[in-house]
């Protein structure tokens, strides 16, 4: 969840994505020279996150432990 808005990442409005990058308490500072490129990549990631969220079967936990994956 976005700690500020309480809205799931993949449901965030476009303005919230931009606000996330520009926020003073953003995880990492983003210089203006590459701000647009980062926002564009974040848009792409948000789309992928939405695809995963839609495909996850109901009842499957989203907080599985980080155990080694068995292929």
């Amino acid at each position: 969840m976005n700690p500020r808005s309480g809205v799931a990442f993949w449901d965030m409005a476009e303005a919230d994505v931009v606000a996330l990058v520009d926020a003073a308490d953003a995880p990492l500072p983003v210089a203006s020279a590459y701000r647009e490129a980062v926002i564009e990549n974040l848009r792409v990631l948000r789309g992928h996150a939405a695809t995963v969220a839609a495909a996850l079967p109901t009842g499957v936990s989203e907080s599985l432990p980080e155990e080694p994956f068995a292929p």
């Binding site: 969840m1 976005n2 799931a8 990442f9 993949w10 996330l20 990058v21 953003a26 995880p27 990492l28 983003v30 590459y34 490129a37 980062v38 926002i39 564009e40 990549n41 974040l42 792409v44 990631l45 996150a49 995963v52 969220a53 495909a55 996850l56 079967p57 499957v60 936990s61 989203e62 907080s63 599985l64 980080e66 994956f69």
Partner: peptide, 25 residues
């Protein structure tokens, strides 16, 4: 690479939780 890594820093834990949960599915 920089632009994607910086974007990755903004991805919340819930997203990676869902991605990991989808792997066994």
């Amino acid at each position: 690479v920089r632009d994607r890594l910086l974007a990755g820093a903004f991805v919340p834990h819930e997203v990676v939780g869902a991605a990991r949960a989808y792997r066994p599915v």
